[in-house]
Design a protein around this nucleic acid. Structure first.
Length: 441
RNA sequence: GCGUCGGUGGCAGAGUGGUCAAUUGCAACUGACUGUAAAUCAGUCGCCCUUAGGGCUACGUAGGUUCAAAUCCUACCCGGCGCA
């Protein structure tokens, strides 16, 4: 098999077609083809960390118009173990989700179990408070022991489940992700805290870049080792969307991750480095935008990065998913979003409505026999009332979490689908204005 | 009927002369949640005054002892248990 054929094989893991752009902006509507089906972009990726979207059946996700599910490398490596998932035939079979899947690399856990462990910091800070900035590297003497310790070669994790010690390198993360078998996987990166200073961000960024290269290299090696029965031609892919009859073994796409915190120079540098990165002439299939932001400058950060990333490949804004943020991201050229928000707040009793979030546990809903939203067509709204959900949550009945999660994921999926429709009809900004006017009222 | 133990804020249940408007849990009320350490976490929770703080009313009921009582004494009411 010749060199060019090898390259061809690797490219087939994913196709991205842009259907329409928002005139004068970076935003666009497109279609990503994967071995497990198409993703209509912009698209919301529902998070199913441990190979399950908490409290929701895959059938319900399908009814919800869920396009993609994202599972997690670190969590599945610890439990049940990636070898078990491989033995099961991969994530799709293991969890009974036939649609497109992604896995995160564990890079976020470098942050959540590291710098953020035991503290009240999220990846998005809403207030720019300089006093929170870490002026110099505070290793571990801030009093709170971390479960993740970063080295240049990899990260030591202390399992949050049983305390056992694990070492994850970029190569290891990619190997795990190949065992898990999602359609799209991510390079191992260091998600930094928004409180870190520029000096540390720069240091972390060069680490992320070197890890990206190592991830890409290992990924390509593993892709080459796959025996694929039929390699579709370019014509087949572009005209039918058909990307192959791969049975249990299909090609996986690798996304590189741009970091750089809130620093413009670092963000731009990272976008350039990741965009141009190649191993044996092969680059990333798409890009993740990771790390931390201040709410206020999230849109400029997306813009800096997406102006540099190649237009023809999909971009995924990692871990972002509040309605306002989705508009911001789409407008600035983001194709994919994932976020635990819709499902987590659902389990905690918050529900999306077009007039803003409501907390179903509030007293006023005890005898409110209307639907969460009159015109919502999700299975929850079709069949249940606010009063019933209020009761389920008060009684701590687990069906409450299920019904709330179904509604919230439906709501977000529909929101993004409506954005897509608006882009195709040249009405993105009208839609945005109308939606946000109601949502913020 | 006699004896005995007990009656504390919506509930359960600490406290047993001053630091008690009263530990704690539950319930209730409100808020948070952005690549899931999360069916979690935080705040409020007698009444009044705008916060600091201050005032008022409260630990079955009514009296009493004391500078001071949820805490001690007396009577009564109510409940558990034991004996008749």
């Amino acid at each position: 098999m010749g060199r060019s054929e090898d390259k061809l094989k690797l490219m087939k893991s994913l196709e991205f077609k842009i259907e329409k752009k928002i005139e004068g902006f970076l935003g666009r509507a497109g279609i990503i083809s994967t071995p497990h089906g198409k993703i209509l972009t912009p698209s919301f990726v529902v998070v199913g960390t441990k190979a399950t979207v908490k409290s929701v059946l895959p059938e319900d996700l399908k009814n919800n118009n869920t396009g993609v599910v994202l599972a997690n490398t670190y969590h599945l490596y610890l439990q049940p173990g990636d070898e078990i998932v491989k033995e099961a035939g991969g994530l799709h079979k293991f969890m009974n989700w036939e649609g497109p899947m992604m896995t995160d690399s564990g890079g976020f856990q470098v942050f959540s179990l590291g710098a953020a462990y035991g503290k009240e910091i999220g990846k998005v800070v809403s207030v720019t408070d300089p006093s929170l900035l870490i002026t110099e590297r505070s290793s571990a003497e801030d009093g709170v022991p971390r479960l993740a310790t970063i080295g240049n070669d990899g990260v030591s994790f202390r399992s949050h489940i049983d305390g056992s010690l694990h070492y994850i390198t970029p190569e290891k993360s990619i190997e795990i992700q190949h065992n898990l078998g999602a359609d799209i996987i991510f390079a191992f990166d260091e998600c930094t805290s928004p409180m870190e200073n520029d000096r540390y961000q720069e240091e972390a960024l060069s680490r992320t870049h070197s890890w990206a290269k190592r991830s890409l290299k290992r990924h390509i090696e593993l892709e080459h080792s796959k025996k694929i029965s039929h390699i579709p031609s370019m014509w087949e892919v572009s005209h039918t969307g058909y990307v192959g009859d791969f049975k249990d073994l299909f090609p996986q796409a690798l996304f590189g991750i741009v970091q750089g915190g809130r620093n413009e120079e670092l963000r731009k540098k990272s976008a350039k480095v990741i965009a141009e990165m190649e191993v044996d002439g092969v680059g990333f299939d798409g890009f993740g935008i990771g790390g931390s932001f201040a709410k206020e400058d999230m849109s400029t950060a997306c813009k800096w990065v997406n102006e540099i990333l190649p237009e023809g490949k999909p971009r995924h804004l990692l871990g972002i998913g509040e309605p306002e943020d989705l508009f911001m991201g789409v407008e600035n050229g983001v194709d994919l979003f994932d976020c635990v928000g819709p499902t987590r707040i659902a389990r905690n009793g918050s529900l999306f409505t077009k007039n803003g979030k409501i907390n179903i546990m509030n007293e006023k809903f005890k005898n409110d026999f209307s639907k969460i939203e009159d015109d919502c067509e999700c299975d929850t709204c079709k069949n249940y009332t606010r009063a019933y959900l209020s009761h389920l949550f008060r009684a701590k009945e687990m069906l409450g979490a299920t019904l709330a999660s179904i509604h919230n994921t439906y709501f977000i999926n529909k929101l993004v689908a409506d954005m897509r429709k608006a882009i195709l009809e040249d009405k993105f900004f009208e839609f945005k204005e109308e939606f946000l006017k109601n949502y913020k009222s």
